[in-house]
Amino acid sequence: MSKLLVSLTGLATAGALALGAGGTQAAPTTVLPAGHAFAAKLTGKATFVAGSTTMTCTVSASVPTGGANNAVPAAPGNHNDAGPVSVPINPPGFSGCTTSVFGVSVTITSNATNGPWKLTLQNGAPAAGGFTIPKGGVVLKTGGLASCTITASPTGPTTVDGGWTNGAPSALAIANAPVPATATGGFLCPTGNQSATFSATYQLTDTTDPTRQITVTG
Protein backbone atom coordinates (compact mmCIF):
# COMPACT_ATOMS: atom_id res chain seq x y z
CA MET A 1 0.00 0.00 0.00
CA SER A 2 2.88 2.37 0.66
CA LYS A 3 3.85 2.12 -3.03
CA LEU A 4 0.35 3.18 -3.97
CA LEU A 5 0.51 6.25 -1.81
CA VAL A 6 3.90 7.20 -3.14
CA SER A 7 2.39 7.06 -6.61
CA LEU A 8 -0.42 9.27 -5.48
CA THR A 9 2.25 11.65 -4.30
CA GLY A 10 3.35 11.73 -7.90
CA LEU A 11 -0.13 12.90 -8.86
CA ALA A 12 0.06 15.79 -6.47
CA THR A 13 3.35 16.80 -7.93
CA ALA A 14 1.85 16.81 -11.36
CA GLY A 15 -0.73 19.45 -10.62
CA ALA A 16 1.77 21.06 -10.46
CA LEU A 17 1.09 22.34 -14.22
CA ALA A 18 4.83 24.27 -12.94
CA LEU A 19 7.93 24.57 -14.98
CA GLY A 20 11.33 25.64 -16.10
CA ALA A 21 13.71 25.46 -18.97
CA GLY A 22 16.66 24.03 -17.11
CA GLY A 23 19.49 22.31 -18.91
CA THR A 24 19.41 24.56 -21.99
CA GLN A 25 21.77 27.31 -23.12
CA ALA A 26 20.53 30.84 -22.51
CA ALA A 27 19.79 31.66 -26.14
CA PRO A 28 17.61 34.68 -26.95
CA THR A 29 13.91 33.82 -26.76
CA THR A 30 10.81 35.39 -28.28
CA VAL A 31 7.27 34.12 -27.68
CA LEU A 32 4.61 35.02 -30.25
CA PRO A 33 2.04 36.41 -30.84
CA ALA A 34 2.76 39.22 -28.37
CA GLY A 35 -0.21 40.03 -26.14
CA HIS A 36 -2.31 37.01 -27.13
CA ALA A 37 -4.08 34.84 -24.55
CA PHE A 38 -3.63 31.08 -24.62
CA ALA A 39 -4.98 27.88 -23.11
CA ALA A 40 -2.85 24.86 -22.15
CA LYS A 41 -4.81 21.60 -22.37
CA LEU A 42 -3.78 18.02 -21.83
CA THR A 43 -3.74 15.77 -24.88
CA GLY A 44 -3.92 12.07 -24.15
CA LYS A 45 -3.33 11.16 -20.52
CA ALA A 46 -1.20 12.47 -17.68
CA THR A 47 0.66 9.58 -16.06
CA PHE A 48 2.06 9.42 -12.54
CA VAL A 49 4.36 6.53 -11.73
CA ALA A 50 6.11 5.36 -8.59
CA GLY A 51 7.40 1.84 -8.24
CA SER A 52 4.89 -0.54 -9.77
CA THR A 53 1.88 1.78 -9.31
CA THR A 54 0.47 4.02 -12.04
CA MET A 55 -2.14 6.76 -11.89
CA THR A 56 -3.64 8.46 -14.93
CA CYS A 57 -5.74 11.60 -15.45
CA THR A 58 -7.65 12.29 -18.64
CA VAL A 59 -8.43 16.00 -18.15
CA SER A 60 -6.07 18.84 -17.22
CA ALA A 61 -6.06 22.46 -18.34
CA SER A 62 -4.99 26.00 -17.54
CA VAL A 63 -7.23 28.52 -19.29
CA PRO A 64 -7.27 32.33 -19.43
CA THR A 65 -9.71 34.29 -17.29
CA GLY A 66 -8.58 37.80 -18.20
CA GLY A 67 -5.62 39.80 -16.96
CA ALA A 68 -1.95 38.87 -17.26
CA ASN A 69 -2.32 35.16 -16.56
CA ASN A 70 -2.25 32.87 -19.62
CA ALA A 71 -1.23 35.76 -21.87
CA VAL A 72 1.96 36.23 -23.86
CA PRO A 73 3.51 39.51 -22.64
CA ALA A 74 3.12 42.52 -24.90
CA ALA A 75 6.28 43.56 -26.76
CA PRO A 76 9.02 44.01 -25.72
CA GLY A 77 8.23 41.80 -22.70
CA ASN A 78 7.73 38.77 -24.94
CA HIS A 79 11.47 38.80 -25.76
CA ASN A 80 14.52 38.05 -23.62
CA ASP A 81 18.02 38.51 -25.05
CA ALA A 82 19.57 36.44 -22.29
CA GLY A 83 17.33 33.40 -21.88
CA PRO A 84 13.77 32.22 -21.28
CA VAL A 85 10.48 34.09 -21.25
CA SER A 86 8.17 33.36 -18.30
CA VAL A 87 4.41 33.82 -18.29
CA PRO A 88 2.12 33.58 -15.23
CA ILE A 89 -0.67 31.05 -15.69
CA ASN A 90 -3.79 30.07 -13.81
CA PRO A 91 -3.36 26.91 -11.71
CA PRO A 92 -4.21 23.90 -13.89
CA GLY A 93 -6.99 21.59 -12.82
CA PHE A 94 -6.94 17.78 -12.91
CA SER A 95 -9.93 15.44 -13.26
CA GLY A 96 -10.85 12.05 -14.64
CA CYS A 97 -8.14 10.52 -12.47
CA THR A 98 -7.91 6.83 -11.65
CA THR A 99 -5.39 4.61 -9.90
CA SER A 100 -4.35 1.06 -10.65
CA VAL A 101 -5.00 0.11 -7.01
CA PHE A 102 -8.54 -1.02 -6.23
CA GLY A 103 -10.55 0.87 -3.64
CA VAL A 104 -8.72 4.21 -3.54
CA SER A 105 -10.22 7.49 -4.84
CA VAL A 106 -8.40 10.75 -5.48
CA THR A 107 -9.34 14.45 -5.33
CA ILE A 108 -6.87 17.11 -6.52
CA THR A 109 -6.93 20.87 -5.97
CA SER A 110 -4.39 23.42 -7.21
CA ASN A 111 -3.77 26.93 -5.89
CA ALA A 112 -1.60 30.02 -6.12
CA THR A 113 -1.76 30.85 -2.42
CA ASN A 114 2.02 30.99 -1.91
CA GLY A 115 3.04 32.32 -5.30
CA PRO A 116 2.25 32.21 -9.01
CA TRP A 117 2.19 29.29 -11.39
CA LYS A 118 4.39 30.02 -14.42
CA LEU A 119 5.01 28.73 -17.91
CA THR A 120 8.64 29.22 -18.97
CA LEU A 121 9.74 28.88 -22.60
CA GLN A 122 13.32 28.78 -23.90
CA ASN A 123 14.40 28.97 -27.52
CA GLY A 124 17.06 26.47 -28.56
CA ALA A 125 17.87 23.33 -30.50
CA PRO A 126 15.71 21.82 -29.21
CA ALA A 127 13.45 24.37 -27.58
CA ALA A 128 12.39 23.73 -23.99
CA GLY A 129 9.57 24.61 -21.64
CA GLY A 130 8.10 23.80 -18.30
CA PHE A 131 5.76 24.66 -15.46
CA THR A 132 6.67 26.20 -12.11
CA ILE A 133 4.58 24.95 -9.19
CA PRO A 134 4.56 27.31 -6.19
CA LYS A 135 5.03 26.10 -2.64
CA GLY A 136 2.05 23.89 -1.75
CA GLY A 137 0.56 24.52 -5.18
CA VAL A 138 -1.14 21.14 -5.47
CA VAL A 139 -2.94 19.21 -2.75
CA LEU A 140 -4.07 15.64 -3.31
CA LYS A 141 -6.44 13.78 -1.01
CA THR A 142 -7.07 10.07 -1.19
CA GLY A 143 -10.12 8.26 0.09
CA GLY A 144 -11.40 4.73 0.41
CA LEU A 145 -8.91 2.15 1.62
CA ALA A 146 -6.38 4.86 2.45
CA SER A 147 -7.10 8.42 3.57
CA CYS A 148 -4.10 10.70 3.07
CA THR A 149 -3.27 14.32 2.28
CA ILE A 150 -0.37 14.85 -0.11
CA THR A 151 1.12 18.29 -0.76
CA ALA A 152 3.36 19.00 -3.73
CA SER A 153 6.35 21.36 -3.54
CA PRO A 154 6.17 21.51 0.27
CA THR A 155 9.21 23.74 0.83
CA GLY A 156 9.23 26.04 -2.19
CA PRO A 157 8.70 26.33 -5.95
CA THR A 158 9.38 23.27 -8.11
CA THR A 159 10.15 23.18 -11.82
CA VAL A 160 8.76 20.49 -14.10
CA ASP A 161 10.80 20.55 -17.29
CA GLY A 162 9.93 19.36 -20.77
CA GLY A 163 10.50 19.84 -24.48
CA TRP A 164 8.72 22.39 -26.67
CA THR A 165 7.62 21.89 -30.30
CA ASN A 166 6.20 24.66 -32.49
CA GLY A 167 3.18 23.44 -34.41
CA ALA A 168 -0.54 23.71 -35.03
CA PRO A 169 -1.02 23.61 -32.11
CA SER A 170 2.34 23.85 -30.37
CA ALA A 171 3.04 21.38 -27.59
CA LEU A 172 4.90 21.02 -24.30
CA ALA A 173 5.91 17.40 -23.61
CA ILE A 174 6.98 16.40 -20.10
CA ALA A 175 8.50 12.95 -19.57
CA ASN A 176 9.30 11.33 -16.21
CA ALA A 177 9.84 14.63 -14.43
CA PRO A 178 10.50 14.27 -10.67
CA VAL A 179 8.62 16.41 -8.12
CA PRO A 180 8.92 16.35 -4.30
CA ALA A 181 5.88 16.02 -2.05
CA THR A 182 4.94 15.42 1.58
CA ALA A 183 2.26 12.99 2.74
CA THR A 184 0.35 12.92 6.01
CA GLY A 185 -2.49 10.77 7.27
CA GLY A 186 -3.49 7.76 9.28
CA PHE A 187 -2.95 4.05 8.90
CA LEU A 188 -1.43 2.96 5.54
CA CYS A 189 -0.28 6.51 4.76
CA PRO A 190 3.42 7.24 4.35
CA THR A 191 4.84 10.23 6.18
CA GLY A 192 7.59 12.67 5.35
CA ASN A 193 9.15 13.33 1.98
CA GLN A 194 8.00 11.41 -1.08
CA SER A 195 8.81 11.52 -4.80
CA ALA A 196 7.49 10.18 -8.10
CA THR A 197 7.57 10.96 -11.82
CA PHE A 198 5.09 12.81 -14.04
CA SER A 199 4.57 12.55 -17.79
CA ALA A 200 2.09 14.52 -19.92
CA THR A 201 1.76 16.52 -23.12
CA TYR A 202 -0.04 19.87 -23.19
CA GLN A 203 -1.16 21.63 -26.35
CA LEU A 204 -1.16 25.44 -26.29
CA THR A 205 -3.78 27.22 -28.38
CA ASP A 206 -4.21 30.93 -29.11
CA THR A 207 -7.57 31.99 -27.66
CA THR A 208 -7.28 35.59 -28.88
CA ASP A 209 -7.04 34.51 -32.53
CA PRO A 210 -7.55 30.76 -33.09
CA THR A 211 -6.01 31.06 -36.55
CA ARG A 212 -2.64 31.90 -34.94
CA GLN A 213 -0.21 29.62 -33.08
CA ILE A 214 1.81 30.14 -29.91
CA THR A 215 5.41 29.85 -31.07
CA VAL A 216 8.91 30.10 -29.61
CA THR A 217 11.71 31.60 -31.66
CA GLY A 218 14.91 33.64 -31.24
Rank of each mutant, 00 (worst) to 15 (best):
11 L>C: 11
14 A>G: 15
16 A>E: 13
18 A>M: 07
20 G>C: 12
21 A>Y: 06
25 Q>K: 14
33 P>Y: 09
34 A>R: 01
37 A>H: 00
41 K>G: 10
43 T>V: 05
50 A>Q: 12
54 T>D: 06
58 T>I: 08
63 V>Q: 06
64 P>C: 06
66 G>A: 02
74 A>Q: 08
75 A>C: 05
84 P>E: 13
87 V>P: 04
87 V>I: 15
92 P>I: 05
94 F>W: 09
94 F>K: 03
95 S>P: 08
95 S>L: 07
97 C>M: 02
99 T>P: 04
102 F>C: 03
104 V>A: 13
106 V>L: 13
114 N>M: 00
117 W>A: 13
119 L>N: 09
120 T>W: 06
121 L>F: 10
121 L>W: 01
122 Q>E: 07
126 P>T: 09
127 A>I: 04
130 G>T: 04
130 G>R: 01
131 F>E: 11
133 I>E: 13
133 I>S: 14
137 G>Q: 03
140 L>P: 02
143 G>R: 08
145 L>H: 05
147 S>L: 07
149 T>K: 06
149 T>S: 08
151 T>Y: 00
159 T>M: 09
164 W>H: 09
174 I>L: 12
175 A>F: 03
176 N>F: 00
177 A>I: 09
178 P>D: 07
180 P>K: 02
183 A>T: 14
184 T>W: 01
185 G>A: 08
188 L>R: 04
189 C>D: 07
189 C>R: 07
190 P>A: 10
194 Q>A: 14
205 T>P: 04
205 T>D: 05
207 T>K: 00
209 D>F: 00
210 P>D: 04
211 T>V: 04
212 R>C: 02
213 Q>T: 02
214 I>W: 04
215 T>A: 03
